[in-house]
Design a protein around this nucleic acid. Structure first.
Lengths: 261, 261
DNA sequence: CGGAGGGTTGAGATTCATCAACGCGTGTGG
DNA sequence: CCACACGCGTTGATGAATCTCAACCCTCCG
């Protein structure tokens, strides 16, 4: 049970720009939600939700990191998402109906803000802004999932890793030629659907196109090294594209709305 | 531009049970939406939306079938969804921001109901039920995507095909030991991320566990033949599980809400 | 100092995609 | 009415690519 004051003190913003469940909520609405929220600390490795569990609440990361993944009978794991501070999970699962299709695990000692299912579901019906926020977030997750799907279907390990690094590059800022891997290599490899060995070999191979990885550091020797791995919908978040300078996907001002018909 | 009367005459219901964008909408709300909707016929093979296009509208299938897929520079395709009558697409994409990450193609001559983006986005803010409907649908798509991801990561072709057939089996009704493949084998193969050849060989292999496929017909010689491919969250839609008779995932009444803490 | 875990490197095995050929049903045109 | 072509699905042989297994280096930490 938190007050808005305490909440703001935690530094979790209702920022524009980034998709957040709290984006542009009114003071009243926020208060209403927080009234029933609870803070919870979890240790590294802890399973917070297990496949098959009933859904309990939405989790927002205030500190630490989580991952969501699926397991099969043989114990093999497929990572769905890897989350950092400010990310939320289980919002989508809450609206799927049925038990949770995923596990949620703490990658490090983490502090979570939890919002009970009942409160969330009631709130969705009362606050259209909140509903829209959830919709945006789930859609974003879905988009990400689609990238994972085509990555595993039609892309080589080099392309998968390249695309992953490209995203991190764009997140870090297009002009930054150096940034850090956000997770341990093992985890990233599993997320990309390859073994740690293949991941390692792939990184080595990427040196030939000007991408050097030293420990956690990623260094781009060629400004456009990773842009070969870009696709049309990813270009949209690249500043080059927005300035109409993208060498691969010229946006010609802005493309008009779908006109087929 | 349709009236509610014409709409009802089309046989598209606001049924309970099945997730639909029109589920439980008030007469007013529905009228409001339909006012700006347009019917559109498309020929087989026609690309309705292309990767990189701006999003135009939501499509609901009144007749025929569609698929959504991603393509890469080399022309290889990864199918995301295959849609039948009553299904909708682009609802999720509409809330992703940016250009469409997917292509939409007619698999057969189809009739579509289109809802313009502007109308949808405005309506979400005015009708919480509509927003909830969209949320449920996008969440459902996301769940499906998660299954695709772990299928391609940790499952063998046999398991993928087995799971796909299991879903169709449960859709057809658990007691039906015979049902039809909903699409051409080529398409299903691509959807599952394998080649038509591998798909064919896999079907042959499945005969050894009592699953016979003859043309479009799927015949189960063993009532539980496909249940080996089930997982905990899929069990929830199986009548055996609901009657507490599932041999693999006993549900013990109903599992209580997540209690880890 | 020694153990544990992450990451890298190498050799071998497995598996699925690729390429090619064929059977079969359907629709078309002579 | 038949011949033919076309598309879908199947089957077989081949090869490339990644997973697996194993050994090794390194850092971190007790």
């Amino acid at each position: 049970m938190l007050s808005v004051k305490e909440f703001n003190a935690l530094g979790i913003l209702r920022q524009d720009g980034k998709a957040s469940i709290f984006h542009q909520l009114s003071e009243d609405s926020l208060q209403n939600l927080l009234q029933h929220s609870v803070l919870r600390d979890v240790d590294e490795g802890r399973l917070i939700v297990q496949q098959g569990d009933a859904v309990g609440c939405i989790y927002m990361i205030l500190k630490g990191s989580l991952r969501t993944f699926r397991t099969d009978a043989e114990g093999k794991e497929a990572t769905i998402r890897m989350l950092k501070v400010g990310d939320t999970c289980m919002e989508a699962v809450m609206f799927m109906g049925g038990p949770s299709p995923i596990n949620v695990q703490a990658l490090s000692h983490s502090r979570l803000l939890t919002l009970p299912e009942k409160i969330v579901k009631a709130h969705v019906l009362n606050d259209a802004q909140f509903a829209t926020n959830l919709l945006r977030i789930v859609a974003k997750h879905y988009k990400n999932a689609m990238h994972q799907i085509d990555a595993m279907n039609i892309k080589s390990p080099v392309q998968r890793v390249g695309y992953y690094l490209l995203l991190k590059h764009l997140e870090a800022g297009f002009d930054k030629q150096q940034f850090a891997l956000p997770f341990r290599k093992q985890l990233i490899a599993n997320y990309l659907g390859i073994t740690p060995e293949t991941f390692s070999r792939t990184l080595k191979h990427l040196q030939t196109v000007g991408v050097e990885v030293d420990g956690e550091k990623v260094i781009l020797h060629d400004q456009l090294a990773l842009h070969h791995f870009c696709d049309s919908d990813t270009a949209a978040i690249c500043s080059l594209y927005q300035e109409d300078k993208c060498p691969i996907y010229p946006c010609h001002g802005r493309r008009a709305a779908n006109q087929t018909g």
